[in-house]
Design a protein around this nucleic acid. Structure first.
Length: 940
RNA sequence: GCCUUGGUGGCGGAAUUGGUAGACGCGCAGGACUUAAAAUCCUGUGACCAUUAUGGUCGUGCCGGUUCGAUCCCGGCCCGAGGUACCA
């Protein structure tokens, strides 16, 4: 590589030998355990956490460490400010890619995972992070997943009491059942028929267990699940993106299966409420709010004509009940079988068959297409007593509400489309303020009105929507045909995966009933299998394990836990990683409490960040942890995009044309490896060599160069735009990498990576070095007393840097450092009094070079143990200010005036300035605005 | 469609959120040093019009408003990114 050759030459003469320095200090930190952290009751704690990575085979690219660098800077800054900082790292090591790879190659996922982790660690180590590696966790290790299994068992052994609004031990529930049956129990549970204490006592063990299973927070039940045939497993809602699996992009279908689920929906309201006080971005909170999806409305009963069946529906708009002209059931709804008439049976069966075949993606693809079938049954509108037809249609979802709706075609666009298609009446019941009711047959779409007043609605007529909703609910409750109800979109989390590489469930089956294994038998280790595929009879891979049974011969559960299991409480494990008696000791938990700063990608908004909040709340209910929320402050780092380069090949030839002239030819843009392009100029020889096309011809630009085009795209191998941090560290050093990643732009914004700008940061370090050493390597630093100007530069920078770090504005700190070094260089300042504090404030960003220079100044202890310099206002206060003088808001000239000058004197001084004459044009100013310390504006 | 964001030089981005628009860096152009290259240093660099210097006009996606003053606040539109999508 050309650039590398140049670099080698550079190094010979270069004073700042980053390579030697960085290796030296990384070794020093490791040997001295500089970043080891222990509980210290005398110091305030601060917990800084990165979302731990899944160790993929591809290794890290330059985008991954962005958040790690930011959190590392923050950790170091907090340490310098006297905090005891917990800053750990580990690996989310269970997961699908390793297993898919295992299926293809036969290589055990534990082996590939171990290798990948090694690679990750090497890459991380090169960047100089201040992690306490003694606290590392790996989710795939038995000593770690013991606690994942343990937490699951606790969920199995608890139920959710809606009255106390928390999880309680299942024993307590059994006591209640024995005393008074289940009548008074207000639990989050699956549908369970009522029983008395007498009934309970008469039930067999199996019956009792079956009933209890409906109440457990971790329960086994027939559920509609996302089944991914290609992966051979079910997936949680957040693992399905646009009807395809998040990993691999395979189609997903809906299927009813017996699956383990976590009753996360019981926590929906608390997940919503407790978010209020979190320091998360509004957008992230909003994503989570939408995902939880609270809606307020009513549950209502509709009688079926000539039948005992009563349809229960959920609506947010009970005010529009007078506008209901038909009803719709989800295809999966149990009501369908109950009410379909003999005449319609065949047609309905056909329809159900048809919808079953469609995948989620198909269903989502043609949302606009109307389909459905009449069941032959009629319901009675409880407000109008009208007979209305009941349909089955797949636009109604089984999983939401009750799987049945009252259709209000006048005011809901889906119902409207359906009504038009099946020629059903469309009554208008809401009118926009200031308008008259109109003939709905002339409408193009429904009026989905959240505001307006009621018409054709009996006792609701004339009310506005808000009042009408309240009045309608009042009437519904009075009539006893329904009640106020809050619904959530958030589903219980499907917790089983029919896969190998995950945590085994600590359960066995006896007589078809799941029983927990003894807690002292944890962890239940993942057994060996001959292949990582399902068994011949369709059992999950664990079905292949030989003698995978309890000592009494009972079979274990064959599914494993999903990816989010291991990541839901890892932040507690870091507090006390070696503890084999508890997830986390009371002492460690009460000291570290929760994560003060969490940095990671926004892609976890609906998965990890919901699950771990739920998991935490459950542990909180059990009294095991002391904080309601796990992550106090959260920052989403932006994505680093790739910057791809292109060459333009003239179609049908081996000729390439430079960017400037490409429009004169018919040509195709082809990705070119950015390693052979420098500042968009192509290295022609390297290109010939790389493509193996020695005869390639080029049409060059007027400078005799080949200029490439560029575009911002996702960083990916296929686009030849992946930049590896190792290469950057090799060429420029870790400090430059760290600093440049921060310099790219605001942390939370996504931005393209362009290595071209990195020279500026590299130059900055060389300039810094030259403040300490002359060209011959002599230390220049002296003990002379600092001048006012020098102190001003220093303190201005101290102030700016602490402010920026506290606001996570790291890009502007880098500028501030550059300005500081430029100014100190101009003053030829080599004074210890200035440079020592300067090193400290720079050290969070560039730990290696600062450590080296710090030692060179004769300091015996690591700079990590020093104290952040105190900002002193006195050094930066000015007695005068150079005021910009504007006329009608446009700046015309500047004038220096004392800051304590009275306003009227300033005014006089400005007006009498000779430069004002021109702008006043002989007129007297209409108005003069004087803002002390800011500006003078004259209105002419 | 809905929600959340963002739109500033050739490029990444500043502007202490109502007070000098374009800090800092890259790139580019010119110069110094050098046998030469690299490195380093200096100067210039939003557009346009004038010009010996000086100077002027326009300019933060577009259109309007509030204000002495708007990148920042308000109303309307256009474009990009992310999330979500039959949620009743």
């Amino acid at each position: 590589m050309q650039t590398f050759k140049i670099f080698k030459k550079k190094l010979k003469k270069m004073e700042y030998n980053f390579r030697e320095i960085e290796q030296k200090w990384q070794k020093f930190w490791k040997e001295n355990k500089t970043y080891k952290v222990e509980i210290d009751e005398n110091l305030p704690k601060f917990y800084v956490l990165d979302m731990f990575p899944y160790p993929s085979g591809a290794g890290l690219h330059v985008g991954h460490p962005l958040g790690y660098i930011a959190s590392d800077i923050y950790s170091r800054y907090k340490r310098l400010n006297g905090f005891n900082v917990l800053h750990p790292m580990g690996y989310d090591a269970f997961g699908l890619p390793a297993e898919q790879y295992a299926i293809q190659t036969g290589q055990h996922p534990a082996v590939t995972t171990e290798n990948n982790i090694k690679r990750y660690r090497e890459q991380l180590d090169k960047i100089g992070f201040s992690y306490d590696w003694d606290r590392e966790v790996r989710t795939c290790e038995p000593s770690y997943y013991k606690w994942t299994q343990w937490a699951f068992l606790q969920m199995f052994k608890h139920w959710y009491n809606k009255t106390s609004d928390k999880a309680e031990p299942i024993e307590k529930l059994i006591e209640i059942f024995a005393k008074e049956g289940n009548k008074s129990v207000n639990a989050a549970c699956n549908e369970t028929s009522a029983f008395t204490a007498e009934d309970w006592k008469g039930f067999s063990e199996k019956q009792k267990e079956e009933i209890l299973l409906n109440y457990r927070l971790a329960y086994l039940a027939d559920t509609m699940v996302n089944w991914c045939p290609a992966l051979g497993t079910v997936l949680a809602n957040d693992e399905v993106v646009n009807g395809l699996s998040e990993r691999g992009g395979h189609p997903v279908v809906q299927k009813e299966m017996k699956q383990w689920s976590l009753r996360i929906s019981a926590y929906a309201q608390r997940l919503l409420d407790d978010m209020e006080n979190l320091e998360w971005s509004d957008s992230l909170k909003e994503i989570q709010r939408n995902w939880i999806g609270r809606s307020q409305g009513a549950e209502m009963l509709f009688k079926i004509k000539n039948s005992d069946v009563v349809l229960e529906i959920f609506t947010t708009r009970p005010d529009t009940t007078f506008g209901v002209s038909f009803m719709v059931l989800a295809p999966e709804s149990a009501y369908v079988q109950q009410i379909t008439t003999v005449e319609c049976k065949q047609a309905v069966e056909n329809y159900l068959e048809e919808t079953k075949k469609r995948s989620e993606r198909d269903r989502m693809a043609d949302v606009k297409k109307v389909s459905g079938e009449f069941t032959g049954a009629y319901a009675i509108n409880p407000f109008t007593n009208a007979e209305i037809p009941v349909y089955v249609a797949d636009y109604v979802l089984a999983g939401y509400g009750t799987g049945a709706i009252m259709a209000v075609p006048g005011h809901d666009s889906r119902d409207f489309r359906f009504a038009r298609h099946f020629e059903l009446p469309i009554p208008q019941v809401v009118v926009e303020k200031g308008k008259e009711p109109s003939d709905t047959s002339s409408w193009d779409d429904s009026f989905d009105a959240k505001e307006g007043f009621m018409v054709n609605s009996g006792f609701l007529n004339g009310m506005d929507v808000k009042d009408a909703i309240a009045a309608a609910i009042g009437e519904i409750e009075k009539k006893g045909i329904g009640k106020r109800k809050i619904n959530f979109r958030l589903r219980d989390a499907i917790f089983s995966r029919q896969r190998y590489w995950g945590e085994p469930f600590p359960l066995y089956f006896k007589d078809g009933i799941p029983y927990p294994i003894n807690e002292n038998e944890l962890p239940l280790e993942l057994p060996e299998v001959d292949k990582f595929l399902p068994t011949e009879d369709g059992q999950p891979p664990l079905g292949r394990a030989e003698n995978w049974k309890t000592k009494d011969g009972y079979s274990y559960e064959l599914s494993t836990m999903p990816g989010f299991a291991g990541s839901s409480a890892y932040y507690y494990r870091y507090m006390d990683p070696k503890n084999d008696k508890a997830l986390v000791s009371k002492q460690a938990n009460e000291y570290w409490r929760n994560v003060d700063l969490y940095i990671g990608g926004t892609e976890h908004a609906t998965g990890h960040l919901v699950y771990s909040r739920y998991w935490n709340k459950f542990l909180y209910d059990m009294g095991l942890v002391c904080e309601k929320e796990p992550f106090k402050k959260l920052i989403n780092q932006g994505m680093i995009q790739g910057r791809s380069n292109f060459v333009y090949r003239i179609n049908g030839t081996g000729k390439y044309v430079s960017l400037e002239q490409k429009d004169n030819y018919e040509c195709s843009a082809i990705h070119v490896d950015l390693n052979i392009v420098s500042n968009d100029i192509l290295d022609l020889d390297a290109f010939k060599k790389l493509t193996g096309n020695e005869k390639a011809e080029f049409i060059l630009n007027e400078n005799g160069e080949y200029k490439c085009g560029w575009e911002v795209e996702k960083m990916s191998k296929s686009k030849y735009n992946v930049v590896n941090p190792d290469d950057i560290v090799e060429q420029y050093g870790a400090d430059t990498l760290r600093m440049y990643e921060m310099f790219l732009g605001p942390l939370e914004q996504s931005k393209p990576w362009d290595t071209n700008g990195i020279d500026g940061v590299f130059k900055f370090f060389r300039k810094t070095w030259r403040l300490f050493y002359d060209q011959d390597g002599n230390l220049l630093v002296n003990n002379n007393v600092a001048e006012k100007a020098e102190l001003k530069i220093l303190h201005k920078t101290i102030k700016k840097i602490s402010r920026d770090i506290e606001q996570f504005s790291f890009n502007t700190s880098v500028s501030a450092f550059m300005i500081c070094v430029n100014e100190l260089g101009d003053l030829k300042c080599n004074k210890r009094e200035i440079l020592e504090p300067f090193l400290i404030i720079l050290s969070p960003f560039a730990p290696h070079i600062t450590e080296e220079l710090w030692a060179a100044l004769g300091n015996k202890e690591s700079i990590v143990k020093s104290k952040f310099p105190e900002f002193k206002e006195e050094f930066v206060t000015e007695s005068s200010f150079e005021y910009p003088v504007s006329f009608n808001g446009k700046m015309r000239f500047k004038i220096e005036m004392p800051l304590d000058m009275p306003k009227d004197e300033m005014e006089k001084m400005v007006i009498s300035d000779e430069r004002s004459v021109k702008w006043l044009e002989g007129k007297a100013p209409k108005k003069v605005i004087v803002v002390p310390g800011k500006i003078v504006n004259i209105v002419v």
